[in-house]
Every structure is written in C-alpha cells, then in structure tokens.
C-alpha cells in the first residue's frame, strides 16, 4: 500500500476481490482440467465449474461492496481532497464497465430472465474485453511506479 491516502484495508479488499475475480474469471474457460491444474494437490476445486462460477460471484460481491463504499465516500467527502491519477481514472472507467457488464451477466443468468441472444453475446465479449483492458492498465500502472488510483490534491 504505497502512499495511498485512503485506509489500507480498502486497498486490501480491492486487491483481494480483483485478484479473486481474475483467477476465477480465467477459470470460467475450461482450462483447469486440460492443463492438469486439477491434479495439483489442493486445486481440484478449479475443475468444478459451478463452484468456480459461485466464487466469481462472491468476489464480485466483495468488489461491488468496496466500489459502493468508495463511491459514496468520494461523493460525500473525498472528492474535495483527492484527485484521480490518469491511470486511476482509466481503471475506474474500465472497472465501471466491468461491473455493469458483469451485473448484466448475472442478471441474465437469473431464472425467468431471457435476454436477446445478440445482447447476451455483446455483454459477454464486452466483459471479456474489459477484463483484458484492466489487466493492461494495471500492468501499465505498476510499471510506471506508484499505482494508486488517487492522490491527495
């Protein structure tokens, strides 16, 4: 937590949720069985598509909670004292898109909800594309030095 102006537990919540989402997101693809991840002691669960999908939803819940908390604090007080870094702003936009597309994806999976197939495909691929974009932006932020989303004005 390098020189972040907000509490480190918020950063930790964010890092844990995004890392969990990245891992369980990758495991949505049928790779664990093929690449013998399921053979690694303690990782047999990676081949359980239902469990991995549920974990993805739970990590999403953690991220959405953190985002709701941060957004409310931002609107109530932080915006006068904090400014988003350029790469922080870019990642906020990407994360917003990921949360919206992910939320739509979860909504689509609820029973009694049937969306137009073209819309579903769009949601899926936007979500996948934004996940890759977030990875790229996070890597760029790490390579540039301090990777905080915001700094004190």
């Amino acid at each position: 937590m390098r020189a972040r102006p907000y509490s480190s537990w918020i950063s930790r919540l964010f890092v844990v949720s995004v890392a969990g989402l990245a891992v369980t997101g990758l495991l949505q693809m049928p790779l664990a069985e093929r690449y013998a991840l399921t053979e690694v002691p303690g990782l047999a669960w990676t081949g359980d598509f239902f469990l991995v999908h549920r974990l993805h939803s739970y990590f999403a819940a953690l991220l959405l909670f953190t985002a709701g908390l941060a957004a409310t604090n931002w609107l109530r007080a932080w915006r006068d004292r904090l400014a988003l870094t350029p790469l922080g702003a870019a990642r906020v936009v990407i994360l917003g898109g990921l949360m919206v597309s992910g939320g739509l994806r979860m909504y689509r999976n609820l029973p009694s909800v049937t969306l137009e197939p073209a819309l579903v495909v769009t949601i899926e691929w936007v979500h996948l594309g934004l996940a890759v974009a977030l990875g790229g932006a996070a890597l760029a932020a790490l390579l540039r030095g301090p990777s905080a989303y915001a700094r004190l004005r």
């Binding site: 972040r4 102006p5 907000y6 509490s7 537990w9 918020i10 999908h53 549920r54 939803s57 739970y58 999403a60 819940a61 953690l62 959405l64 909670f65 953190t66 985002a67 709701g68 908390l69 941060a70 957004a71 409310t72 604090n73 109530r76 007080a77 932080w78 004292r81 904090l82 939320g103 979860m106 909504y107 999976n109 609820l110 004190l152």
Partner: peptide, 26 residues
C-alpha cells in the same frame, strides 16, 4: 450468489453513509 452480488453495492453505499472508511490519511 448472483443475488448477493447484485445487492452488494447497496450494502457498500450504506456503509459509506455510515462513515466507514471515510478517514483519509496524511
């Protein structure tokens, strides 16, 4: 799980209004 995730931001907003995590560090 999806229902929990869809309700999570509401909990986050409520926590924000309660002042949780609002303190900024120098």
């Amino acid at each position: 799980a999806a229902t929990a995730a869809l309700l999570a931001p509401v909990a986050g907003i409520a926590a924000g209004f309660l002042g949780i995590g609002a303190r900024l560090l120098g």
